[in-house]
Design a protein around this nucleic acid. Sequence first.
DNA 1: AAGGTTACCTGCCCGC
DNA 2: TGCGGGCAGGTAACCT
Length: 274
Amino acid sequence: MPELPEIETVKNSLAPILTGRKLLSITANRPNLRYLLPNFKVASNSVVHTLSRRAKYLLLSLDIDYVILIHLGMSGRLIIDNEEAKNNKHNHVIFQFEGVKLVYCDPRRFGMVDLIAKSELDTCKYFSKLGIEPLSDDFNAEYLLQVCTKSSTTIKQLIMDNNVVVGVGNIYANESLFLAGIAPNTIAKFLPQAKIIMLVNTIKQVLQKAIQAGGSSMKDFVDGHNQAGSFQQHFAVYGRDGKNCIICSSIIKKLIISGRATYFCPECQEKFEP
DNA sequence: AAGGTTACCTGCCCGC
DNA sequence: TGCGGGCAGGTAACCT
């Protein structure tokens, strides 16, 4: 489900509820998700210090030496317990706070929950190879140009590569490339500098607008209050193959790049070649 | 060594 | 109505 804006939305919705709140216990209803779940005992009776996000990971920093790391995979949800959250067979991890229960629900179980010592955060297997945050100043034209210059992969794969820049998943890659007027199958090193500058800007723009809209709710994305986002109403190309381009009315095309559905306007998006 | 493919899992939608 | 196939927001382990 979730790309950067969706995690940011979940973080924003949960932060006011969980910050400063006592965590009584964490219960796992099965041994594993994507990975084996840890022994959560050390987190019992700690207090949530801050909520933050790195790439598509949500971090709950505790007042002890540990951080709870949560990744929603494709279908994960974090829901403050209510009627709707009850009795779901995919409720895999229960965070019992003082007065509030937070439920991690994930039908496909591609997500993860782990407990990492603060001193090992940067070097842990999840974080050690992560690229730059797209909304930071470090993600700029100079950086992307330098990466593109030496890459003969497609520009779409490149911006979805977590070693290069984090948080840009399939939806926002498609949308950013449309706004920048770049065909997704352009080989990265053939991109003109002006287009690279545009792409950096459209990636930031799309992500920021999606965060403002509360994320994109494709099948069932919701924030901590079970509220859907609305950015899917603004998709220019994602999932719109066969429909008219919102700019030029051409038919939006679909192709598969590296196994992922890719949508683009053949008129508005130029394929650059040597 | 980069780039492509497959696997992980369940649910849902479509066509027959 | 039921069943099989294909597809889904992500990541990482394999291959070549």
